[in-house]
Amino acid sequence: MGRKRLITDSFQVVKKRKRDSKETKKAQSPLHGEYYTAHPDQLETLKQFDLSWQYGPCTGITRLQRWERAELLGLNPPAMVRELLEKHNKDPLVTYSLWHGYCL
């Protein structure tokens, strides 16, 4: 009778490398790239703009489209919101509304 066969006899053993620290994971995150420059307080301002129903619905359009629509309708949206949208126009966290990731 021979020796008992192990699963490692058929498959190569692959060892996972350990991560150095949480900092390397944070550095690899796409949210820390060159286009993602909006500060948390600026994102909070945009979030409040999304949650304010006086400027109309925000689903299905970008924040800039919503701001322009509100301006055309004479609803006087905050000018600071437009400045943020134009300044950080490549940042998806700024461009799209709070509800962009949800199927509604």
Rank of each mutant, 00 (worst) to 15 (best):
D91Y: 13
P30D: 04
C58P: 00
L31A: 09
L43Y: 10
Q65K: 07
P30F: 12
G74V: 14
G74M: 04
L51R: 14
L6F: 11
T59M: 08
W67Y: 09
R5I: 06
L6V: 11
P78A: 05
R82V: 02
Y35N: 15
L46D: 05
V14I: 12
E83N: 13
T95R: 08
T95N: 01
T37S: 11
L51F: 10
L84W: 04
L104N: 10
I7A: 12
L73R: 13
W53E: 05
R17I: 11
M1Q: 15
V13W: 11
R19E: 15
L51K: 13
C58I: 04
Q65G: 00
V14E: 05
D50W: 10
G74I: 13
H32E: 06
W99F: 11
K16L: 06
Y35L: 09
I7N: 09
V13K: 13
K4Y: 09
H39W: 02
T37W: 03
Q42M: 02
H100L: 02
W99Y: 10
H39C: 02
T59W: 13
Y35V: 15
H88F: 07
N76S: 09
G60A: 06
D50T: 15
R82E: 02
R3F: 03
G2T: 02
Q28Y: 06
G101Y: 15
K47W: 06
K22V: 07
Y96G: 00
Q12R: 14
A27N: 09
P77N: 00
L51E: 15
M1F: 08
R69H: 04
T59C: 09
T62G: 15
F49K: 00
S29I: 15
P57Y: 07
K18V: 05
Q12A: 11
L73F: 07
K4M: 02
A27L: 04
Y36E: 08
E68C: 04
D9K: 09
M80T: 12
S52L: 01
D9H: 14
Q48F: 04
K4R: 10
L64D: 00
I7T: 13
F11I: 06
H100R: 08
K87R: 14
E71H: 09
Q65S: 03
W99P: 00
D20A: 07
R3E: 14
K16M: 08
S10T: 06
H100V: 01
A38W: 12
S97A: 14
D9F: 08
K25E: 14
E34S: 11
P30S: 03
R19Q: 14
D20F: 11
G60M: 09
L104T: 06
M80P: 10
F11T: 07
P57M: 03
V81N: 03
L93P: 02
G60F: 03
I7E: 10
T62V: 09
W67N: 02
T24H: 05
K90P: 10
R19A: 14
Y96Q: 03
P57F: 05
Q65H: 04
Y36S: 10
K90N: 14
H100W: 05
